[in-house]
C-alpha cells in the first residue's frame, strides 16, 4: 500500500473517531452536575440573565439540537464562547495551544535524545555499573510524577540557586516578540530578538525538563530492553563473526531496529505531555492548553471542554499516524499493516 493510500484511509477513519469522540464528550459534559451558566454568572445573577445566556448558547434546546449547533459551528471554525475567559474558544486555543506545544516539543527533544542515548548506553553495557546507574535513575524517573520534579526544580533552581526563572514564558521587562507561530522561542528567533530568545529558552528549561523526565526514563528502559534483546539475535552474532567493529554494529545494525518500540511509545508520550501538563503548567504559571482544559472542566465551560477534547483527539490521531509512518520507515517488514502474511 502506498503512503498516500495509507494516509487517506487513516484520515477517513479519523473522521469517524472524531465524530464518536465529539458525541461522547458532548454527552458527558451535559450530564455532569451543575448549571454552567449559573456558575459563570454567579449565584446572585438574575434569572433572566441566566435564561438569556442559556438561549444564546442554545442550552434551552434539546440535546440533539445543541449538538447540531455545536457541530455545524465547529465545522465553520466557530467553537463558541468560553464561559470562563469570555472570549471565542478558537482564540483561546490559538493562544494557549502553542504555549503547550512549545513545552511539549522541548520536552520531546530532551526525552528522545537523552532517553534513547541512555537506553543505548545501558543496553550496550548491560549489567555493568553504568547500566545499573541508568536503571536506578530510570526507576526513579518512571515512578515520580512530573509535578514532583517541577516542585523540586522550583525549590532547587528557583529558590536556592536562583538560576532559572520560575513563572511564565518570558520575563516582564523584556520586549515580547510579535506572534508569528505562537512559539515564543521561534518567534524571537524569526524576529531577531535574541534577548527574548535567551529569556524564553531559560523559561522553558525547568517546566520542559520536569515534563520530560518521566518519559525519558521510560524511553531509556524500553530502549535498553530492546537493545538487549537484539544483541542476542543471530544476525548480530553473524555480523560480529565477520569482524565488524562494535561501534558499527551498534550504530548500523542494532540501533535502528531497536528504536521501533521506542518510537511507538515516544509518540504517545509526546501527545500525553500535551494532555497531562496541567500541574506543571500550574506550578510554572505557564499559560498553556492543558491548564486551560482542566480549568474548563472544573468550571464546566462546555464549549471549551468540547474543543479541548477534540483538539487532543486530533493530536493523538496525528501522532499515531506519524508514529506508524516512522515505524514503517524504520522496519521494512512493516508495510503499513496490510500486506503482512502475503
Amino acid at each position: 500500500m502506498s503512503v498516500l493510500k495509507f494516509l487517506i484511509k487513516r484520515l477517513i477513519y479519523s473522521i469517524f473517531v472524531l465524530l464518536g469522540l465529539s458525541v461522547l464528550i458532548f454527552g458527558i459534559s451535559r450530564v455532569l452536575p451543575g448549571d454552567p451558566v449559573r456558575m459563570a454568572l454567579g449565584a446572585r445573577a438574575p434569572q433572566w440573565a441566566v435564561e438569556n445566556m442559556r438561549a444564546a448558547m442554545h442550552l434551552d434546546q434539546p440535546l440533539y439540537a445543541q449538538y447540531w449547533y455545536w457541530l455545524s459551528g465547529a465545522v465553520r471554525g466557530d467553537l463558541g464562547q468560553s464561559l470562563v475567559t469570555r472570549r471565542q474558544v478558537s482564540a483561546d486555543i490559538a493562544e494557549f495551544f502553542p504555549a503547550t506545544l512549545e513545552l511539549a516539543l522541548f520536552a520531546g527533544i530532551i526525552m528522545a535524545a537523552f532517553g534513547i542515548t541512555f537506553g543505548a548506553i545501558a543496553g550496550r553495557y548491560r549489567n555493568r555499573w553504568i547500566d545499573n546507574v541508568i536503571r536506578i535513575f530510570s526507576y526513579i524517573g518512571v515512578v515520580t510524577p512530573s509535578y514532583v520534579f517541577a516542585i523540586l526544580f522550583v525549590l532547587l533552581f528557583g529558590y536556592l540557586l536562583r538560576v532559572f526563572p520560575t513563572i511564565g514564558r518570558i520575563s516582564g521587562g523584556i520586549v515580547r516578540p510579535p506572534t508569528i507561530t505562537g512559539l515564543m522561542t521561534v518567534d524571537s528567533l524569526l524576529s531577531g530578538n535574541f534577548v527574548a530568545l535567551g529569556d524564553a529558552f531559560l523559561h522553558l528549561v525547568l517546566p520542559g525538563v520536569s515534563l520530560a523526565l518521566g518519559s525519558l526514563a521510560q524511553q531509556a528502559r524500553i530502549a535498553r530492553a530492546s537493545i538487549s534483546d537484539n544483541l542476542n539475535k543471530d544476525y548480530i552474532a553473524s555480523v560480529r563473526s565477520f569482524g565488524v567493529p562494535e561501534r558499527v554494529i551498534m550504530c548500523k545494525y542494532l540501533l535502528k531496529p531497536s528504536l521501533i518500540p521506542t518510537m511507538s511509545i515516544l509518540g504517545l508520550d509526546f501527545a500525553g505531555i500535551v494532555a497531562n501538563a496541567f500541574l506543571v503548567e500550574l506550578i510554572f504559571n505557564w499559560p498553556g492548553f492543558s491548564r486551560y482544559g482542566v480549568n474548563a472542566m472544573l468550571n464546566k465551560d462546555l464549549n471549551a471542554v468540547a474543543a479541548v477534547v477534540m483538539v487532543l483527539g486530533m493530536l493523538f490521531i496525528t501522532v499515531n499516524i506519524l508514529v506508524d509512518l516512522g515505524v514503517a520507515w524504520l522496519d521494512p517488514r512493516v508495510r503499513l499493516g496490510t500486506e503482512r502474511g502475503k
Partner: peptide, 18 residues
C-alpha cells in the same frame, strides 16, 4: 502593578524569596 494568576505554594515561596 502585576496581578499574577497563581497560588501554587512552591512558586509563591520562590517568588517572594527572590
Amino acid at each position: 502593578v502585576h496581578f499574577i494568576g497563581t497560588t501554587e505554594a512552591a512558586t509563591v515561596r520562590t517568588l517572594l524569596a527572590r
